[in-house]
Amino acid sequence: MSLGLPVIASASSMVLIPEGPFTMGKGNQSPHGPERRLFLGPFLIDLNEVTNEEFQAQFPDHRFRKGAARHPVTKVTWYLAKEYCNKIGGRLPSEPEWEKAARGEYGFIYPWGDHKPKKRPHPFYSGVVKKKVGFNKQDVSPYGIHDMAGSVWEWTADAQGPLKIIRGGLWNLHLDFEYSKAFEKATIPPGERLSFLGFRCVRSID
């Protein structure tokens, strides 16, 4: 399957996702299904996950270790992530927005296509491996968005009961690419600060 050229408005660090249909979900069973076609209006989404230095610019008390300025910020609650996005004039993405940005119009399994890479990721480590955002040149969606399968999981605006839905994935020795399919989801209490969980923002286009 091939897509048309991605439409990228990249004057800033956000990318335009054009209006139109896309495939959401996979199969008919929960939690990934049902697979269906949805339509979304245009919106802008961060090219990369929010970094430590970007987060610190809005929340000066945020501390991070030397060399991690361009790593994705983690250990932030859903409330803080939402507040950050609001401060910069955006908001957290809805699940459909996140999934369209990750899978493209035709619903790839992974952001780069339907096949997992032959080379195993981080073969000698079991924890979260953080690198500069955008470091991985393969983990790029049809719209050019980075790190939607690897890096860290991401908060979304949506919820299941009291829990917030997170999307994305991470790669390590044990997880391999199993939980990096772009339709994967999990749920986390909004007050948790977890080392594998960051976020990115979106902006509506009126």
Partner: peptide, 26 residues
């Protein structure tokens, strides 16, 4: 990892017959 946070993945609970269950992490 020195962090050791439970990651999203699969659990095999001994008291539930080791039947695999998806977990969200934490």
């Amino acid at each position: 990892s020195p962090d050791g946070t439970i990651l999203p993945g699969t659990d095999h609970p001994l008291d539930l017959g080791k039947t695999p269950r998806r977990i969200s992490g934490g």
